[in-house]
Design a protein around this nucleic acid. Structure first.
Lengths: 232, 232
DNA sequence: GAAGGCATGTGACCAAAGTCATAGCTCTCC
DNA sequence: GGAGAGCTATGACTTTGGTCACATGCCTTC
């Protein structure tokens, strides 16, 4: 398959560039540089200067903040097709958060000038970008709410429900989750392993889940949902 | 002074519409409806459906989330000239947070269709909106970091420093702050009054501030800064 | 199957934040 | 100046989360 046509199709699936016609897409495709990352690779760190956007064409990335004490907080997990780190594009500042590859990741890299030029020429792209930013903002506000008003328990329940839904979207059963290690869960939630362990066991004691090695079985989704919503 | 010309000047000061020429501004001005709010008035609540943007021309507003338990968290304090709640504009969804007037507020209300039309006609406006969104995102990420990794103590120190800076920007001395009640501070920080009281007293005991009735004197800004930065 | 490496479960402990109750303070308004 | 409202200080207590330490279990690799 010709690489150029392939790349064009990939671009077309990005929400940001969906409004573009083939000619404009082709122009973009010519300027985009392909990149590949292995699981765990860092695409960039918070504070790095930004030269352009990453256009995810396959795989997924984790957007997170690091604390000085070694804790982490996952802001978002973003699966292809999507763009990542659009913010520094428009204001020229550094990246606000770090991004790492969850699995194998293919991306196209588009330089800042090229992106801005497209925006000016095709206002629809700018509007699409605004929609993307809007989603990000909503997500962050929700997360902030959960962190401020809720406890780890609540956020953990929520995380499990999300993962269940995600795996259901991919045609999997949806009640047996392949979560990573508890350490990973802890980093996502911005807490530590022990707390995750205790809360998982508590969920199990209450009959909401069953813990297997490396996997979780959701026994009572409604119960989990009750935990997740509790007096927010 | 003719109301129309006045309104035009106000629009011109908004970051969002700075790139527009006079003709375009005049067209906007004709479509914008003036509104006024008294201190404490609610402009809208989180979850309300959105019909357009508020363009702040005078005063300041507080953007916040409410918890079911009656706690609050201030996401941002936005002073004129600025726009408020741009997010629902682009995705048509409900407002993500509530907004109330801090003091007397004058605003212009612009309907969604009118805003979108301007964006399409003047891509620079869309880019300006992207810059505004970018700032919001950066602010939220920072806040999230502070809430997750830091304590109330840290956030309080930060809040005081911010207020000191703000009052300095307005030509005031800058080391005597007219903070509201401790209750207000608590709501801004997403905590409760007692915790604020204790932390303020602790700061005083450490010689960082002096507490007067209704006002605070900053004695040791660097000490406060050290508290604010501590091992984030 | 022994050894070492992870991942996990748990108890003891500590610190921070939230809750409750109460007492004192400061202002304003008659 | 006194009454009352609202704001503030503070002690006692609970809950939650984080730290430390250590035991256990599982899996891989010689």
């Amino acid at each position: 398959m010709p690489a150029a046509a392939d790349r064009l199709a990939q671009l077309h699936r990005l929400p940001l560039f969906a409004p573009l016609d083939d000619a404009a897409l082709a122009a973009l495709a010519r300027r985009a540089a392909p990149r590949a990352y292995a699981a765990g690779d860092i695409l960039f760190h918070a504070g790095d200067a930004c030269a352009g956007v990453h256009l995810l064409t396959a795989g997924a990335v984790r957007i997170f903040k690091l604390s000085a004490a070694g804790r982490e907080l996952t802001l978002h997990i973003q699966a292809a097709p999507a763009t990542v780190a659009e913010v520094p594009l428009v204001d020229g500042g550094p990246y606000p958060a770090s991004v790492s590859a969850v699995g194998e990741v293919s991306a196209l890299f588009l330089r800042r000038e090229d992106f801005l030029a497209v925006c000016l020429e095709h206002p629809q792209v700018a509007l699409a970008a605004l929609r993307v930013f809007g989603q990000r903002l909503r997500g962050l506000v929700e997360l902030l709410e959960a962190v401020t008003f809720g406890g780890v328990r609540q956020r953990l329940a929520r995380l499990l429900l999300e993962q269940a839904q995600r795996s259901r979207q991919q045609g999997e059963p949806g009640d047996v989750l392949q979560v990573g290690s508890q350490q990973q869960l802890a980093l996502e939630l911005g807490t530590v392993r022990e707390v995750v362990s205790r809360n998982l066991n508590r969920f199990q004691a209450e009959g909401l889940i069953r813990i297997h090695s490396r996997a979780l079985e959701v026994l009572d989704p409604d119960g989990l949902r009750r935990e997740a919503e509790a007096e927010l």
